[in-house]
Simulated scan of single mutants.
Amino acid sequence: MISSLCMALETACPDTRSRNRAALKAGMAWGRTLARQSRENTEKDLPSSVTQTLLNALTTLGFAPVRSQPNTASLYLTSCPFLDSVSSHPIICTIHLGMIQGLVDGGNKKAGDKQASVSLKPLSSPKGCFLKVVKADSRSKGRVKQ
């Protein structure tokens, strides 16, 4: 099924540049929806940190995230629910990058305000994909402390 969705996106956006923009945009919309749902679910509890929101959402989606180091927001995604399709449709990773950015940005009230920048290095480690999250006001320091 995911292959069919990827083929539809690839057909609708035949050039790589527009395809990547569309995939990132779609992923960001998905991530903002997940962030909104997370806020609604934790409204009565203590507010969740960006890292905890990511850990909860990515666990629920089947990515089995683990922190790369204690007290950082950077994670290894040790599983991928779409691993069988990634080699023939790498656009999946771009959608996931957008989804993660949408999750991170989803808590912001102002559109365009970014809490952090994210980068995703698919299958870059024996542990899985590496997700680096850098808080907007700590980019010069190189890590998020949460």
Rank of each mutant, 00 (worst) to 15 (best):
D15E: 09
S117I: 07
Q146F: 12
T60F: 14
K121F: 04
L5V: 07
T53P: 09
T60Q: 01
T51S: 02
A23L: 15
P122L: 06
L61S: 02
D105H: 04
M28K: 15
P90G: 01
H89D: 13
V133T: 06
A22L: 15
P47T: 09
A26F: 15
D15P: 08
S124F: 07
D137M: 12
K114I: 09
Q37W: 02
M99V: 06
L103S: 03
R17D: 15
T59V: 01
A8H: 06
L61N: 00
G31Y: 01
G98D: 02
M7V: 10
I100A: 01
Q37R: 11
T60M: 10
R32Y: 04
T16M: 11
S38E: 03
S138K: 14
L24W: 08
L24S: 12
L131K: 04
P126A: 10
L58W: 00
E40R: 06
V66F: 05
P90C: 00
L103N: 00
A64W: 00
K145R: 10
N56H: 14
S117Y: 09
G112N: 07
V118F: 00
G128H: 08
V134A: 10
A26R: 10
N56V: 08
K145V: 09
V104M: 00
Q37F: 08
I92T: 06
R19F: 03
H96I: 12
P70F: 14
M1C: 10
S48I: 04
S85R: 11
G142H: 14
R36N: 02
L46T: 07
S68R: 04
D105C: 03
L5F: 05
Q115L: 11
S87M: 00
A23H: 12
S140Q: 11
P65A: 02
S18R: 04
Q37I: 00
W30Y: 10
F82Q: 06
R67D: 03
P81M: 07
T59D: 05
T53F: 02
N41P: 05
K132F: 03
T60R: 03
R143F: 10
A12H: 08
P90L: 02
M99S: 01
T53D: 09
P70Y: 15
K141F: 14
S140A: 14
K121P: 00
R17Q: 14
T60D: 01
S4K: 13
R21V: 13
A73W: 02
S49F: 00
A111P: 07
K141G: 12
G128L: 04
L61P: 07
N71E: 10
S140M: 14
V118Y: 00
D113A: 07
G112Y: 06
L34I: 06
V118C: 01
A73R: 05
A8T: 09
A26M: 14
T11A: 11
A136K: 08
T33K: 13
L120I: 08
A26I: 14
G98R: 04
F130D: 12
K127H: 07
D84H: 11
L131R: 09
K114L: 12
T53R: 03
R19Y: 09
Q101H: 10
S74K: 02
D15H: 09
S119R: 12
